[in-house]
Amino acid sequence: MRTLKLQVQITVDGFIAGPEGEQDWMTWNWDEELQKFVDEITAPVDCIVLGRKLAEGFIPYWTEVAQDPDNPEQESGKKFTETQKIVFSDTLEKSKWGNTELAQGDLVDEITRLKTQDGGDITAYGGATFVANLIEHRLIDDYYLFVNPVALGGGLPIFNNLNEYQHLNLVQSRAFGCGIVLLHYEPE
């Protein structure tokens, strides 16, 4: 069975975006150690799942990065562009992006189908509502929370749909020189 990883930047007060979806608070001056770590956890990934709202910025951004030989993130852009993407949407009727399929069925059924297929790891990047639904339905196998050194006081949470406690086991914690702290959890 394939593993579904959540890889997300988050604030110390638990938000993945500001109240209007702002992400200008994120630490982007990653040190070499953090970049190497992220490259290692994304290497076995051969499928990315996204909500429609995040996909509309994520896919075009990384496609452009992949085509820019002067961009230091070009290799990451190539990885994201070449990796199969599944966009969950109730509003789109067909994909407008390359190497991307739409999933419009039941979230649990679609993710279960993907997890039972042959292949490498699956990574979920967001957005907030999509990720909150994955968490609510206990579909995440590995949580990679990259805690940024900032508190917003309000914004878009991902742990807001819980009807009961979800206990997590800490697998790893690691502080990086740029101020980001990784918290890697697995469901109990």
Rank of each mutant, 00 (worst) to 15 (best):
T3Y: 11
V147R: 05
N133D: 11
E20Y: 03
T27E: 14
F88D: 09
R138Y: 14
F80P: 08
K115T: 15
T123A: 15
G155N: 06
V87G: 09
A66Q: 00
V65L: 05
W25N: 01
D68G: 01
G127Q: 07
D24L: 08
I158N: 04
G57C: 01
V150Y: 02
K94M: 13
S173T: 14
C178D: 12
E22R: 07
E110K: 04
L168M: 12
E93L: 02
D109A: 15
D31A: 04
Y144P: 05
D106P: 02
L168E: 06
L152F: 05
L92K: 08
E82R: 12
Y61S: 02
M1L: 07
L139G: 11
G21T: 05
I158G: 04
T81G: 02
L162W: 11
L6V: 07
G77F: 08
D142F: 01
A43T: 03
G127F: 02
V87Y: 00
Y185V: 13
V87N: 03
T63S: 15
T3L: 08
K5N: 14
T112K: 04
N71A: 07
L92C: 06
I41G: 00
L134T: 06
L114D: 09
G77D: 04
T112H: 08
Q35C: 08
T83M: 09
L145S: 02
V8S: 05
V87H: 10
Y125V: 01
I10P: 01
Y125H: 15
A43Q: 04
G77A: 00
W97T: 10
P187A: 07
R52G: 06
T91Q: 13
Q172V: 09
E40D: 13
L170T: 09
N71D: 14
G98M: 07
T27D: 08
G14P: 04
K53E: 05
A55S: 03
T81W: 12
G105A: 07
I140V: 15
F159P: 00
E188W: 10
L54K: 10
D46K: 02
E64C: 03
V65Q: 10
N160Q: 09
W30S: 03
Q35T: 12
F130C: 01
L92Y: 10
G77H: 09
P19A: 05
Q104W: 01
Y165W: 12
A132F: 02
T129V: 13
I59V: 15
S173F: 13
H184I: 11
G14H: 05
T91F: 12
D13E: 10
E110F: 03
I111E: 11
M1C: 09
M26G: 03
Q104T: 06
A43Y: 07
G154A: 09
E110H: 10
R138V: 02
S76F: 11
T11V: 07
C178A: 13
L107R: 10
D70Q: 15
L145A: 09
L92V: 01
F130K: 00
A55P: 08
E20K: 14
Y165D: 07
Q23A: 02
V8M: 06
W62Y: 03
Q9R: 04
C178Y: 08
I111N: 02
G154S: 14
Q7W: 00
Y125S: 14
I111V: 14
E188D: 12
I16F: 08
L54S: 06
L139P: 07
E64S: 12
V147Q: 08
W25T: 00
